[in-house]
Design a protein around this nucleic acid. Structure first.
Length: 372
RNA sequence: GCUGGAAUCGCGUAGUGGCAAUCGCAGGAGGCUGUAAACCUCCCGACUUCGGUCUUCGUAGGUUCGAGUCCUACUUCCAGCA
């Protein structure tokens, strides 16, 4: 079971330490997205070298391959992937709900595997069992987000879906406790708050979850920093202050991190930094740069003079540009290292700023320069 | 020298009488937020008030209402024979 210690708090914003059986996470923290038990293009040594404290895998993906039973046989997620540190698993609810043709009933979700078309059914109970086999330190309840990739749905439909998430959350908690009984009780469970973009529903969902004995909370179904500004505070005012909160899937934009922290989120995960890195976009203090642009062909400076990553300490912009133009895999690796380091270092600085009570000025300086 | 064949946007190609003309590569730009993403989208002859306008398929002629496509000559290249 995890422990959460708050070192300093101002309003909703806080800095602290989550202690898990596999290690500690100084918060706020960015968690690496290792969906299939691997961060794309990065080795575990590179991941820890750039300062990542924890990783998040996805139960849906691991059930499909190699099978949660196999991860269990391998000794659990951390051992399987050689990661010495805290681990999370996402339930797969988000992925399953966004598959074409998914049928959701009271019992669970019926859908076809995106890999081989096999007909599959996932229920709250089966997701809990899979996550226990995978054996991460922190599990997510099997939830039912709405509106992924499409416009939001109306109030009543959003409310129905939220209610379903609530029913499933109670079943997840029961199953989790059943699995914990008699087992080595080191695995924690987060409930996942829903409610679309309706403040009333977000409040209702937070109140529902606040009343249940989850070890922490995931904030689900949020798709932009603007929604974060509008809704994070609504939920986090209600959720128990002494438990950690994870903003699911957000952190591609530096603004996400500042908004999330300001409104009380402790951990974040996002595929964005590595994905855009592989696709040629690099973070810099002055905003994003597309390394493939012709203007970088003869730029012998570095991507980010303030960065201490392997890319910025050893290679020029022109060299990285070249690697991308000729499609060398090394370019994607170096870009991934840099972007992850950029996000991790930004979080490090946010933590420091909170401790030194100068978050606002650091935020304003950073965002002003980044988004000029 | 002879006999065939070929010349199309940077490169490689599609097109054998009916709208500047296919596709790939190269090139230019943009996107990506709980990863079906080392992926996707757009542009890529010139000009444009974005509706169009103009000039194009080795060069020069010709046939035709109409030619990248047919005919003639020339130029260059390729293959084979001398």
């Amino acid at each position: 079971m995890l422990k959460f210690e708050i070192l300093q708090q101002k309003g909703l914003m806080r800095t602290g330490v989550i202690s898990t059986p596999h290690g500690r996470i100084r918060t706020p923290a960015f968690v690496g997205a290792a969906t299939r038990a691997a961060m794309k293009a990065l080795t575990v040594k590179q991941m820890s070298g750039l300062g990542l404290q924890a990783v998040l895998a996805n139960a849906y993906h691991l059930v499909l391959a190699p099978g949660s039973w196999l991860v269990k046989e391998a000794g659990g997620l951390a051992k399987f992937m050689g990661w010495e540190g805290p681990t999370f698993t996402d339930s797969g609810g988000f992925q399953i709900m966004s598959l074409p043709g998914v049928r959701v009933s009271e019992n669970g979700a019926e859908f076809k595997s995106h890999i081989n078309g096999d007909k599959l059914i996932v229920t709250p109970e089966s997701s809990m069992r899979a996550q226990w086999e995978i054996g991460a330190d922190i599990h997510m309840a099997f939830d039912c987000p709405v509106g992924y990739g499409v416009s939001r749905v109306g109030f009543s439909e959003t409310k129905d879906v939220m209610k379903r998430t609530h029913v499933w959350a109670e079943r997840c908690l029961l199953e989790h406790q059943k699995l914990a009984n008699g087992a080595d009780d080191y695995q924690s469970l987060y409930g996942v708050v829903q409610g679309g973009d309706f403040a009333d529903l977000r409040r209702e969902s937070a109140e529902f979850f606040a009343a249940l004995e989850f070890d922490g909370y995931g904030i689900g179904g949020m798709y932009s920093v603007d929604e974060g500004r509008k809704l994070l505070g609504v939920m986090n005012e209600i959720l128990p202050n002494d438990r950690p909160r994870h903003w699911l899937g957000m952190g591609q934009e530096p603004a996400d991190l500042f908004v999330g922290v300001e409104f009380g989120c402790d951990t974040f995960d996002c595929v964005g930094p590595t994905r855009i890195a592989r696709n040629g976009t690099l973070y810099s203090p002055r905003g994003r740069m597309n390394i493939r642009n012709a203007k970088y062909r003869t730029d012998f400076g570095v991507v980010d003079a303030e960065c201490d990553c392997e890319l910025c300490k050893n290679y020029s912009v022109a060299y990285l540009h070249h690697l991308f133009k000729v499609d060398e895999i090394t370019g994607k690796i170096l870009a991934s290292i840099h972007n992850e380091r950029f996000v991790v270092r930004t979080m490090d600085r946010i933590r420091e700023a909170i401790l030194e009570d100068k978050f606002e000025s650091f935020r304003d300086d950073f965002l002003q320069r980044y988004y000029c």
